[in-house]
Design a binder for these strands. Structure first.
Lengths: 121, 121
DNA sequence: ATAATATATGAACAAGTATTCATATATTGA
DNA sequence: TCAATATATGAATACTTGTTCATATATTAT
């Protein structure tokens, strides 16, 4: 019963934390979106697509790496409904699937990209 | 030289994509932040901490799992400067390290958590 | 000092996954 | 149909990582 003391110390934050916690599906949805952007190779692809739709060949030029590696990552993003594919003649043209990811990329880009890093003493 | 044709088709988007691409350090910073939030166990910890600082014991209650697993994830988040630790008597109290992550969590929470999912035909 | 509580951590193991290589599929032009 | 271009993908490999178990460290009270 010694933890009862602690129970009350920050009880309000704990209760709010429990109350605001999404369902498992919500957690999966959120972490899935973050996971899509958590690998450098995929993040580059997504950042490139914020500028407009691009075919695989151009994506390879924009992000580097081999065509095979890019295609594998494109499949992961496609299956996760993060991006959308459309055939255009010999090419397949990709674009971001919805605005949510674009918003997250924008927020991260503005907040993290331009700044070197913040050490706090 | 056959790709020259393609070079021009979407050249503007490709050029913008190349122009907007962050440095490798920028990419690492962004993907690192996303990676912190890409695992359900860590995401839960971070979401809980958006409600205020919490000690490990309370975090375990808020997010579930064993104390050891939570502590391991806390270490990863701590070393990545995503969260901050402060000792308070027998307890160690954790809090979010900066507002950037909170902003990303907020954006994701609003955009992804409450909605079931969007299938597009 | 000893016991109890709170947290951290090393080692081991199990999954998950990003890349490469080789090859398959699809589209276009001759 | 055949060749060329564009993209996708299966298998194998190497690497990363999340969890568990056992144990270590730190703080407090007696």
């Amino acid at each position: 019963m010694s933890e009862c003391q602690r129970e009350k110390e920050h009880a309000c934050a704990l209760e709010r934390a429990i109350a605001c916690m999404p369902t498992e599906e919500g957690i999966e949805a959120m972490s899935g979106a973050f996971k899509a952007m958590s690998e450098p190779s995929r993040l580059k692809i997504l950042l490139a697509l914020t500028q407009g739709e691009l075919c695989v060949y151009h994506l390879v030029q924009a992000v580097g790496g081999t065509q095979s590696a890019v295609s594998h990552q494109l499949r992961i993003l496609r299956e996760g409904k993060i991006i959308r594919a459309r055939r255009d003649g010999q090419n397949v043209v990709y674009s971001l699937a919805d605005g949510h990811v674009a918003q997250l990329l924008q927020t991260a880009y503005e907040h993290l990209s331009c700044k070197g890093g913040e050490e706090d003493a």
